[in-house]
C-alpha cells in the first residue's frame, strides 16, 4: 500500500497533468481557473502599494495609528522616555481579588481603568529583556520577570494584573502592533494571560502599511509573531462587536517619542 504522502502528491501531479488546458472556464469574465500546467512560478501582478506615502514615525502616520487604535477601543498614550516610568506606574491596575482565582473572573465588568497613584498596587509581569528604566518608577507594584529560561506558570500569569512589553513594529492603517517574541516582548503567554496589556511602541517603529511591516518581519520569519489590533473582541452575537473576551480585555498602547 502506498503511503499517504506519496499518494497525495501523485494525485496532485495527476490532477495538474490531466487538466485539459484547452477547456476555457464558463467565463463571465474569463478569470476562473486558467492555471496552466507549467510549474515555474508565474508572474504575480503586484501593483498594490508596497509602502505608504508617509515616512515611518511621521506625524501623519502616528495620527492614523492613533485614530485606528481608538476606533478599536485601545487606550492610547503619548509620552517621552522621561515621563514613561510614571505613566506606566499609573497604568498598572489595582490588584483585583477576583482575578487571583483561576476561572472566577468577573464576567460582568472588565473594568480595569487606571487608578490614582495612591491606591494599592497590583502585580505586573515583564519580559526579562525589557528596558529596566521603564519599570524603575513602579513603586509599590510587584514586578515579576519572565523569560524562556525561567518562565512563570500559567497559574502565576493568571494572578498578575498586567503585562508591560515592547513591540517590534506597528501598522498605522490597520491599527496593529506586532510582537515577535524577542527578549523585550517576551513569551507569547506573557502578553496573553494577564488582563491588561501595556505595550510600549517607539514612534520610529510605526509604519503606514501592512507590506512595510511584513518586509520588516520577514527578516526573522521564524520568530513567533503576534499581531494585535485592539483588545480581544468578538462579533459572534448578531455581528455586534464586544471588546474583551479571552485575550487581554484592556490594551494600552504607549507611543514613545
Amino acid at each position: 500500500m502506498t503511503d499517504a504522502r506519496t499518494e497525495i502528491l501523485s494525485r496532485i501531479r495527476g490532477a495538474l497533468g490531466s487538466a485539459d488546458s484547452s477547456a476555457g472556464a464558463a467565463g463571465t469574465t474569463g478569470a476562473a481557473g486558467t492555471a496552466g500546467v507549467t510549474r515555474a512560478p508565474s508572474v504575480v501582478p503586484r501593483e498594490y502599494r508596497s509602502a505608504g506615502e508617509h515616512a515611518p514615525g511621521s506625524d501623519a502616520v502616528l495620527e492614523v495609528l492613533i485614530d485606528r487604535l481608538v476606533d478599536y477601543k485601545a487606550e492610547v498614550h503619548r509620552t517621552t522616555p522621561k515621563d514613561l516610568p510614571r505613566l506606566l506606574a499609573r497604568l498598572i491596575p489595582q490588584r483585583s481579588a477576583e482575578r487571583q482565582v483561576v476561572g472566577s473572573s468577573d464576567y460582568r465588568s472588565p473594568d480595569v481603568l487606571p487608578t490614582t497613584p495612591s491606591t494599592p498596587r497590583g502585580a505586573v509581569v515583564v519580559p526579562h529583556g525589557i528596558d529596566q528604566a521603564w519599570v524603575s518608577a513602579m513603586g509599590g507594584v510587584e514586578v515579576r520577570t519572565d523569560s524562556r529560561e525561567a518562565p512563570l506558570s500559567a497559574a502565576e500569569l493568571d494572578e498578575v494584573d498586567a503585562v508591560v512589553t515592547a513591540a517590534r513594529v506597528a501598522v498605522a492603517e490597520t491599527g496593529t502592533i506586532v510582537l515577535d517574541g524577542e527578549a523585550d516582548q517576551g513569551r507569547r503567554a506573557v502578553s496573553l494571560v494577564p488582563d491588561v496589556h501595556v505595550c510600549v511602541v517607539r514612534t520610529d517603529q510605526v509604519v503606514q502599511t501592512v507590506p512595510e511591516a511584513v518586509r520588516l518581519l520577514g527578516a526573522d520569519p521564524e520568530r513567533p509573531l503576534t499581531w494585535i489590533s485592539g483588545p480581544s473582541a468578538t462579533s459572534d452575537i448578531e455581528l455586534e462587536r464586544v471588546e474583551g473576551v479571552h485575550g487581554p480585555r484592556t490594551l494600552h498602547v504607549v507611543l514613545l517619542s
Binding site: 484547452s22 477547456a23 472556464a25 467565463g27 463571465t28 469574465t29
Partner: peptide
C-alpha cells in the same frame, strides 16, 4: 448581452 459577450464563445469552444 452578457451571455453573448461572456458565454457564447465558451460554449462553442467547449
Amino acid at each position: 448581452t452578457g451571455s453573448i459577450r461572456h458565454q457564447q464563445s465558451m460554449v462553442l469552444e467547449r
